[in-house]
């Protein structure tokens, strides 16, 4: 890594540290400090985990798809996760699956999700290499299909319960399931480490299939491995906060802009840091200053959607 990149990462890390401190200690009253601090620490950990998962997943996915406007969510990854979750309850609910505690259940969910995603999106990416817009459209509609099936199953399971519909439709950075946090954190850390270990190969992958093959890369294996990492990370973020379609797009765009350098060894940590800065800073701003905790996800999606349209109009689809 060159000096500029190291410096940039250091600045980003400092910024995140500062924001985290602000998050933890701002407006801390005299009473009940221990309780408030632990509450805030849990939420901070959740925000950072989700942010890193989304940011890194997007960078990895864009490299595999050789496309800078895609995110795993646009292509239906999170919808697949929700569908898979619903299906597991439908198929295995009676077999005691529903009764498992959150940690192991989540582990099984992620395992199944990873297998499914590798098969499905591996095929789609391989088929879509020649007609990228058609591939994107397929992914988007697949997402709609998965969401509809999940909603349908949710309705059939419990006709009066709208929770599934809600969970599929809206993201919220507020209702984080704390029980999942330890497993989610470990999974994210493992996936990010693996991605950083792979980064020299990812640099070659980013040159495109033909160059990668002619440079002697085990192309298919690497694509599948990277997709598996993406699936793990998306499972984490979806399980914790719900679907977030465009946030990763902003993060990946900023990461590329900040690093000015396509080396993944720098890009991956940068994406994680930038995502965490945006989420922690945004949540702090909305929750503590504006007093509207619920709306951050909507604002993020709005901005991300506009950014996507902008990229489309600039002809950056390829």
């Amino acid at each position: 890594m060159d000096r500029r990149a190291t410096l940039m990462l250091a600045v980003l890390a400092l910024l995140l540290a500062g924001l985290s401190a602000l998050w933890m200690f701002q407006g801390l009253g005299a009473g009940n400090r221990g309780f408030i601090l632990s509450l805030r620490a849990t939420k901070l950990a959740a925000l950072v985990t989700v942010a890193v998962a989304i940011g890194v997943a997007t960078v990895l996915f864009q490299t595999v798809a050789a496309n800078r406007v895609l995110t795993p969510s646009i292509m239906g990854f999170d919808a697949l996760y929700v569908l898979m979750q619903t299906l597991m309850i439908v198929l295995l609910g009676n077999a005691g699956f529903a009764g498992l505690s959150a940690g192991p259940k989540f582990g099984i969910d992620v395992g199944v999700m990873t297998a499914l995603a590798v098969v499905l999106f591996g095929t789609l990416l391989a088929k879509g290499a020649r007609d990228i817009p058609r591939m994107i459209l397929t992914g988007v509609i697949l997402g709609v299909l998965f969401r509809s099936v999940s909603q349908f199953l949710g309705r059939v399971l419990d006709p009066n319960e709208f929770a599934v519909v809600q969970a599929v439709s809206f993201a919220s950075f507020n209702r984080v399931d704390a029980a999942l946090l330890p497993v989610a954190g470990v999974l994210t850390a493992v996936a990010v480490m693996a991605a950083i270990r792979l980064s020299p190969q990812l640099d070659v992958l980013a040159l495109g299939r033909e160059s990668a093959v002619s440079l002697g890369l085990r192309y298919r294996a690497l694509v599948m491995g990277t997709l598996a990492l993406v699936a793990m990370l998306v499972s984490v973020s979806t399980a914790l906060v719900g679907p977030v379609a465009f946030f990763g797009l902003i993060v990946a765009g900023l990461a590329h802009g900040a690093m000015q350098n396509a080396r993944h060894a720098g890009l991956i940590p940068a994406a994680g840091l930038i995502a965490a800065i945006l989420l922690v800073g945004g949540q702090w701003l909305f929750e503590r200053i504006l007093g509207q905790a619920a709306t951050l996800s909507v604002v993020v999606e709005f901005a991300g959607g506009l950014f996507f349209l902008y990229l489309l109009l600039k002809g950056r689809i390829r």
């Binding site: 817009p133 459209l137 988007v140 909507v298 709005f302 959607g305 349209l309 489309l312 689809i317």
Partner: peptide, 23 residues
């Protein structure tokens, strides 16, 4: 020439407008 960009742009635009409505 990019026929498929039109539906994609439409879907994203409805998403953006939808988030305004939700907000």
């Amino acid at each position: 020439r990019e026929v498929m960009l039109i539906p994609i742009a439409g879907l994203v635009l409805s998403g953006v407008l939808g988030s305004v409505v939700t907000f």
